[in-house]
C-alpha cells in the first residue's frame, strides 16, 4: 500500500540482523518507504531503530532477507560500493554531536559532499558553488550564515548544531534522509522549529525521511507512523 508512485524508495523484506555475541535478532518482515515519503519510526529503546538505520546506510550487513534502496539491492554491493552509495544518496542526522569541532559550521555542511562527486555536482547545480549551496541551506534552516562563518562550531547551541547537521544531510539533494532522534536533545520550542524546517526542506528537495523518535507528539506531522516492537525476536510489520 504505497501511495507514492510505482517504485518504492526503500524496500525491506524478511530482513534479519543478529548482534554479535548476543541472541537478540532484529527481523523486519515488510517495510517500504515511497519516494519523498516522510515516515515516523518509533519503538522502545533497544528495539533496533538505530540498527535499522545502520542497515539502510549499508554500514551493517544483514544476515538474511532483502534490502533494496533506489532499486539497488545493498547486499550485492561490495563494502566500498555501499559506502559510495551512502555518500551519494543518503543523508544522516544524529541525536547530537553531529559536527566535527575542527571545521567551521559551513565546512561541516560542505562535508556532506566530501565523499560524493555526484552530491558535489548537484550542490553546484543548485547553488553555483558547494559553499554557496551550504550557505543557502543554512539560511533556509533559519541560521544567519554570516554570523556562523565567524564562529567556531563549538560555540553553537545544540539547536543550531542540529540545523547545521540537517543542512549537511540535505546538501547535494540526497534521496533519503535518516534522522536518529535528532530532536531529543532540544527543548520544545526549538524542537518544533527544527522539525518544521526539516520537513519543509525535505519536501522541497523531494527527499524521503525516516525520522526515529520517542516523542509521539511529533508523529502527527508525518505521512505515516511505523512502530518497531520488542519481542524475543524483534519483529516488525509495516
Amino acid at each position: 500500500m504505497i501511495p507514492w508512485g510505482a517504485v518504492p524508495l526503500l524496500t525491506c523484506r524478511d530482513l534479519r540482523f543478529s548482534w554479535p555475541r548476543t541472541n537478540a535478532t532484529l527481523t523486519i518482515r515488510d517495510f517500504q518507504v515511497g519516494q519523498g515519503e516522510r515516515v515516523f519510526l518509533c519503538g522502545p529503546s533497544g528495539s533496533g531503530k538505530s540498527t535499522l538505520l545502520g542497515l539502510i546506510g549499508g554500514v551493517l550487513q544483514p544476515q538474511g532477507g532483502e534490502l533494496v534502496v533506489l532499486e539497488q539491492s545493498l547486499s550485492v554491493l561490495t563494502p566500498a560500493r555501499r559506502d559510495r552509495f551512502r555518500a551519494d544518496f543518503l543523508g544522516f542526522i544524529f541525536q547530537q554531536f553531529n559536527l566535527l569541532p575542527f571545521l567551521d559550521p559551513v565546512e561541516n555542511v560542505m562535508l556532506g559532499c566530501a565523499f560524493s562527486p555526484l552530491r558535489k555536482v548537484r550542490a553546484m547545480a543548485s547553488g553555483g558553488t558547494v559553499r554557496d549551496e551550504a550557505l543557502r541551506l543554512l539560511v533556509a534552516l533559519g541560521l544567519d550564515a554570516r554570523i556562523l562563518e565567524r564562529r567556531g562550531t563549538g560555540q553553537l547551541s545544540v539547536g543550531q548544531q542540529q540545523r547545521v547537521a540537517a543542512a549537511r544531510a540535505l546538501i547535494g539533494g540526497p534521496d533519503l534522509v535518516l534522522a536518529d532522534e535528532p530532536t531529543s536533545a532540544l527543548d520544545a520550542a526549538t524542537r518544533d522549529g527544527f522539525l518544521r524546517l526539516l520537513l519543509a526542506e525535505c519536501a522541497r528537495h523531494g527527499a524521503g525521511l525516516i525520522f526515529v523518535s520517542h516523542d509521539m507528539a511529533l508523529a502527527s506531522q508525518f505521512d505515516r507512523v511505523v512502530a518497531l516492537e520488542t519481542s524475543p525476536s524483534r519483529q516488525m510489520e509495516a
Binding site: R84, A87, F92, F94, N98, F115
Partner: peptide
Amino acid sequence: ILRAVGASA
C-alpha cells in the same frame, strides 16, 4: 560522522 557522510572504514 565521517562514516555517515560516506567515508569507508
